[in-house]
Computed example of a mutant assay.
Amino acid sequence: MQSIETNSKGFEIFSKSWFPRNSPVKALICFCHGYGDTCTFFFEGIAKKLAASGYGVFALDYPGYGLSDGLHGYIPSFDSLVDDVIEHFSKVKENPKYQSLPSFLFGQSMGGAVALKVHFKQPHAWDGAVLVAPMCKMGEDVLPPWPLLQLLTCISILFPKMKLVPPKDIAEMGFKELKKREQASYNVIAYKDKPRLKTACELLKTTQEIECQLAEVSLPLLILHGEADVLTDCSVSEALYEKASSSDKEILIYKDAYHSLLEGEPDETINLVLDNIVSWLEKRCAKTE
């Protein structure tokens, strides 16, 4: 099911949901997509797998992404984007049909940072979080040299929407399988251009903030990361696991896997990752019964 609703800031937000066909909903999974991505295309298969396992899955395109309102690829404030996500998922959870159900955040890449920021603002509102290659720190291969980074940061004050950040082939760096990398080019509503200056600055600032707040993460946590990921730093996922104050936390590192664990790997790896996620969710849902 898909819909377009106007949020409190006047943006039209595109959202989509998936449900199990012949069984009651066990729990809610609220998905936060990655940079440049959407809540459709690749995520469709993931959502259908989760729904087939008994979960109600909810997702939205952030303002400026996918089919939602806003300048494409522009994030003037990461905290404001997080507030938009909270507003949307709060409406979902307030539905009388779902109020008694456990709810989980599911964040992928930049969406992992969104999910963690949601948790920081709502520390007791969620029953757990699944973070796939979370953007807690950008890989060194993605960042421009320090002097250029400082220059771009200064220019962003005057020209926040300008596309001056040196381009990187995100699909090549993130997708291990060539055929799946080629499929990414067919996602015509994904943002594939150079990052806008303000967006790049907001992402960098957000990772720096999260890296300093790892000990504040207190909810049940499953972290999944590819060992060969050069887009988001696997070592920071390991630091998140070590420093998080959660009493219930687990980390799974996949040998030789790239960034896009659920889209760009061989099918056997993708199925393994999904099975690991469903198994973790099953155990946490059993604890809330």
Rank of each mutant, 00 (worst) to 15 (best):
E265Q: 14
A59W: 05
L131D: 04
K255A: 13
Y55F: 15
L262I: 06
S246E: 13
L81V: 13
D267T: 10
E216T: 11
A133S: 15
L60T: 01
L219N: 02
A52D: 15
S245I: 10
K283P: 10
K93R: 15
V278A: 02
E282A: 07
V25E: 11
H72A: 15
L116E: 02
G174E: 04
F175S: 11
F43K: 00
S15M: 08
P160V: 03
N276R: 13
V92G: 04
M138Q: 04
Y55P: 07
S103L: 02
V57G: 10
G45M: 01
F31A: 10
L105N: 07
E250M: 13
E87R: 10
T207E: 08
Y191T: 07
I253S: 06
A47R: 01
G66W: 02
S17I: 08
T232Y: 00
F159S: 10
R21C: 09
P76D: 14
K161E: 14
P96K: 13
E238M: 10
L221W: 08
L28D: 03
I210P: 02
V114Q: 00
Q108I: 09
F175A: 12
L131E: 01
L143P: 03
D256Y: 11
C212V: 07
L105E: 06
C285G: 04
I277R: 11
F78N: 11
Y186T: 14
V82G: 01
D248W: 00
D248F: 08
S109Q: 02
F175Y: 15
C136E: 03
K179W: 04
F58R: 09
S8P: 01
E263L: 06
K137W: 05
Q99D: 00
Y258P: 08
K180Q: 14
N7S: 02
L252C: 14
